[in-house]
Design a protein around this nucleic acid. Structure first.
Lengths: 234, 234
DNA sequence: TCCATTGTTTGATGATAAACGAAGCGTCGA
DNA sequence: TCGACGCTTCGTTTATCATCAAACAATGGA
């Protein structure tokens, strides 16, 4: 088989991978740049988990999505911007320009959002980096992922915010770890400490949660407080 | 079903239409903007005419191609530029940027090329228009397509080029007709007279055929001769 | 008018693949 | 260590679809 025919075949396999309603719903869902778990995507695609797993495998073998395991979950996301662009080009054919795909994470989600029970986005990543450079937290080696301990500086600072670090340590969950941020591609602070920080930020109205999505809005109070307490100019 | 889900479904149907090797070969073949007959496309797709017919119907129902009947033939071509753009976006995913699709007729083909045994492209269309305005040929009405007769002016001119018009009239084929030019979307001169003109142009080295494609190169001699004999400034 | 060419439609057949449940494998939290 | 949970793999069923030959329709030329 010559190179031309082989390229055609590869192209048709990619198009076929997109040409199945359930798989297209999966791709469409991932278009915002977020990573989703297998279970979430099964619900979106409206198929059983086992069926979704087969679909995800197929999309992966065509390099349309990539996966990264994190603990119990497997996070799937688009392989890259080309995939989003191809889907957008296809959507032009379907019903004109009736509906536009959002090729990347929307600005309002990219800046700050919740990731389960802690902060993600630019805000979350910046805070994580600042806590590290202020030496409130320090990395400890572990075979899987980044784990953190709270230093004596950190203990003082967190208690100053009204966080009960000892109680957080006794929760049946990871204490503090670097949680991969999918819009920033860098770590933000997860675990019990991360959750406690979000709780404080919400309670003190540094950020407010929007309805209907996971976005967080930074208030002017929050802007001031985060600058004063962490030296972080957002 | 909500609008979102319906758009996804339409999208997946389009992707599925492209996701079949034979159909993709057809689309790929049509990417140069030319129209092809059902039989030609069956050969390209390497399937039987009946199978090709089914595929062409499917592509047509998804508005990826359009058809126009001309006599015994049915000419298929891409629906529009968006289809070419979508295929190009997909080809980025297949094997990187290894091979680029040509979304429209390449310049070298657009200017001048063979159409079976006569001239097409800008050159062919210009010549056709000029022969009409010089009254070498005149349109005669016919229920299907444009047919032409050669006037006394034309007879003189063609004989001056060494063309045996009487012999051309006796060939078992259409004498002269307007053949739709798919890159120009206008007619060029086909039939026995069109073929005889190409033969002369090749013999006198006004144009030379390139190897491997249907392109024609206009020589400087051809440029001069066509200007002198037809008053055509290319 | 007749025949060759071109193309579509139909019907039958075989291959592909999408779907699910059950079972298996890892990881997390108690 | 022991479930609980998330996810995948396997095996089976079912439905879809690509394919071709044969029949049919339309056109052009002799």
């Amino acid at each position: 088989m010559d190179a031309e025919a082989q390229a055609d075949l590869a192209l048709s396999r990619i198009a076929a991978a997109m040409g199945e309603p359930a798989r297209l719903r999966i791709l469409h869902c991932l278009l915002d740049g977020h990573a989703r778990t297998s279970t979430e995507l099964a619900a979106v695609a409206e198929v059983s988990p086992s069926t979704a797993s087969v679909h995800l495998n197929r999309l992966r073998s065509e390099s349309l999505i990539k996966v990264s395991a994190q603990g119990k979950h497997r996070y799937y996301r688009l392989q890259g911007g080309e995939v989003a662009r191809a889907l957008e080009a296809l959507s032009v054919l379907a019903g004109g320009a009736r509906r536009r795909f959002v090729p990347s994470t929307p600005v309002y989600l990219r800046f700050a959002r919740t990731c389960y029970d802690h902060m993600a986005g630019t805000l979350g990543v910046s805070l994580h980096d600042q806590l590290l450079s202020l030496r409130w937290i320090a990395e400890i080696h572990n075979r899987r992922g980044h784990l953190y301990q709270v230093t004596s500086y950190g203990l003082e600072g967190l208690m100053g915010l009204g966080i009960d670090v000892a109680a957080a340590r006794n929760l049946h969950r990871r204490f503090a770890f670097g949680c991969m941020d999918w819009s920033e591609r860098r770590a933000h602070l997860g675990g019990a400490i991360g959750a406690a920080l979000l709780k404080v930020a919400l309670k003190r109205k540094w950020v407010v949660q929007e309805v209907g999505n996971r976005a967080l809005s930074l208030t002017s109070l929050g802007h001031r407080e985060i600058h004063n307490r962490f030296g972080l100019q957002l």
